[in-house]
């Protein structure tokens, strides 16, 4: 089954197509990497899939049942989708713990005014933060964390969403090897839990190590697709990267 499928998806900015007639299928329960030179449309694709940018043409199909030509960002959790950001977006003035707790709240406003966090919310937060190793630091403000800790917090937030589909935009960028290990471990665990992970990544080693499938984008179009070893050996792919 396909978690996400795009059919002739288009997104343009002032006439320039950042995503140009893209049709791809992402298999459930696999780790799929989206790669390509800078400006090939990877982040735009993620932004469109998560509703932060409007779809200008084509469709997005979620789990082969929801056919969408318009995605509202605050509805994506109901489709089981969550994402992280290339530039890391956290709630800076809130503590690590609060960054997680806010995910677990009641979305109905009236109930939320009277709801304070119950123990089971804290349990979930503890689980998730322990998984990324931030539980001891839970009282610190997000703005005071180191770069690596911030990336881990974003992953933790995504985990707290308990989503089915994870869109991760360059989760390893700028990290020390120890951190890389932690995160790639988490991604593998997600696969074992039958979650779907979509990765934007540049590091060829990680791509080979983690991905089950790879899509290569260039100038908004699909250049190549397939298993990592095949795709990365293709001449067009190499040229696209070298020519950037």
């Amino acid at each position: 089954m396909f978690s996400i499928q795009t059919k002739n998806l288009k997104k343009h900015f002032d006439g320039v197509y950042a995503v140009d007639d893209l049709s791809i299928k992402i298999e459930t329960g696999q780790i799929t990497s989206i790669i390509g030179p800078n400006g090939s449309g990877k982040t735009t694709l993620i932004n469109t899939l998560s509703g932060l940018l409007e779809i200008d043409g084509g469709l997005v199909v979620i789990e082969e049942s929801e056919k969408l030509s318009k995605i509202t960002p605050h509805e994506i959790p109901s489709f089981g989708i969550t994402r992280t950001f290339q530039n890391i977006h956290l709630f800076e003035q809130m503590t690590i713990l609060d960054n997680i707790l806010v995910v677990l709240t009641d979305r109905q406003v009236f109930r939320a005014i009277f709801e304070t966090h119950q123990t089971f919310h804290l349990k979930i937060a503890e689980e998730v933060l322990t998984r990324v190793g931030l539980w001891e630091k839970r009282g610190q403000l997000a703005v005071n964390l180191s770069y690596g800790q911030r990336k881990l917090l974003e992953i933790a937030r995504a985990l707290a969403m308990d989503a089915k589909i994870y869109l991760l935009d360059e989760p390893f960028a700028g990290l020390f090897p120890e951190m890389v290990k932690i995160i790639s471990g988490i991604i593998k665990e997600l696969k074992q839990e039958s979650k779907t992970v979509i990765l934007i990544e540049h590091d060829m080693g990680l791509i080979r190590e983690l991905s089950d499938y790879v899509f290569v984008l260039d100038s908004g179009k699909l250049l190549a697709e397939g298993k990592p070893s095949e795709v990365l050996a293709k001449r067009e792919v190499i040229e696209a990267y070298l020519g950037e």
Binding site: P77, V109, A112
Partner: peptide, 26 residues
């Protein structure tokens, strides 16, 4: 400080985009 609503309000003040992503109808 204490309620979910309050946390959501602080979240939206902090970063509207992320609030949307985590499902808050901002």
């Amino acid at each position: 400080k204490k309620t979910s609503f309050g946390k959501a309000v602080r979240a939206v003040s902090d970063d509207e985009e992320v609030s949307k992503i985590i499902g808050i109808n901002t």
